[in-house]
Computed example of a mutant assay.
Amino acid sequence: MDEKLNNFPLYIKAIEIYELVHKVSVLIENNGDENDFDNHVMNEYKNQMNENALIIPAKIAGAFPEDMLYDLKMENASIIRKCARTILTTTSGLKMVGFTDFDYLELIRNEIEEFRILFAEWVKTFDEWNYSIDRWGLFNPPGVQYDDYDIDDDLPFNNPFDDEV
C-alpha cells in the first residue's frame, strides 16, 4: 500500500474507527436465540457497523490520488459520509435494543466527530477544475451543469458494441 496513504491523517483515523468498531462488535454476542428480536436486531446493527467501517478506508484509498477527477472524488466522499453517518445512527440503535456498554458507543461517536473534521478539510482540497461533466448532475463543480457542452463529446469514438445486433 502507498506509504503516503498510510500516513494520511484521515486514512489513519478511518482505520482507528474500524478497529474500535470491530472491538465493540466482539462485545455483541449472538445468544443463539433466533426468536429474540432484540438479539437479532443487535447483531444486524453489529454487521452494519462493521460493513460501514470497512468501506470508509477503502473509499478514502479510492479517492486518494490527487489527479483523480472531481466527480469521482465527490462520489467516494459521499459514500464515506453516508457510512460514517450510518455508524452514528447505529450506535443509537444499539442503545435502543439493550447494548449496555455505552462508553464504547460514545468513543465511536467521538472518533466519528474527529473524522468528520478531517474529512471536511480533505474535501476542500478537491480540485474543482479537474473534472469531466457528470451527466447525472450530482457531482459537478459549482457552475457546471449536467447538460453543458463538453468539447470532449465531439471526439470521434468508435464503440465496439455498435456493430453487434
Rank of each mutant, 00 (worst) to 15 (best):
M1W: 04
M1A: 14
N6V: 03
Y11G: 03
Y11M: 05
K13P: 00
I15E: 10
I15N: 03
V21S: 05
K23S: 12
L27P: 00
L27T: 15
L27D: 12
N30L: 03
N31A: 12
N31K: 13
E34V: 14
E34P: 02
N35I: 11
F37Y: 12
F37I: 15
D38G: 13
D38L: 09
H40W: 07
V41Y: 08
Y45I: 12
Y45T: 11
K46G: 02
Q48E: 15
M49P: 01
M49W: 00
N50L: 13
E51S: 10
N52R: 04
L54S: 13
L54N: 09
I56K: 02
A58N: 02
G62H: 02
A63R: 04
F64Y: 02
P65C: 11
D67L: 14
D67C: 07
M68T: 09
Y70D: 07
L72S: 12
K73Y: 00
E75D: 14
N76C: 06
A77E: 00
S78F: 05
I80K: 00
I80C: 03
K82T: 11
K82G: 12
K82E: 08
C83R: 02
T89G: 11
T90N: 13
S92N: 15
S92D: 09
L94F: 04
K95Y: 06
M96I: 14
G98V: 06
G98S: 11
G98H: 01
F99M: 12
D101R: 05
F102I: 14
F102A: 14
D103G: 08
Y104Q: 12
R109C: 12
I112L: 06
F115I: 07
I117P: 00
L118G: 04
L118F: 01
L118W: 00
A120T: 10
E121T: 08
W122A: 10
W122D: 05
K124E: 13
E128Y: 01
W129L: 15
W129M: 15
N130Q: 07
N130C: 07
S132K: 10
R135P: 03
R135I: 09
W136A: 15
G137E: 04
G137M: 06
G137V: 08
L138S: 11
L138W: 06
L138Q: 13
F139T: 10
P142Q: 15
P142R: 14
P142A: 14
Q145N: 15
Q145C: 09
Y146N: 15
D147G: 06
Y149K: 10
Y149G: 10
Y149A: 14
I151Y: 03
D152M: 11
D152K: 13
D154M: 05
L155F: 04
L155G: 04
N159Q: 08
D163S: 11
D163M: 06
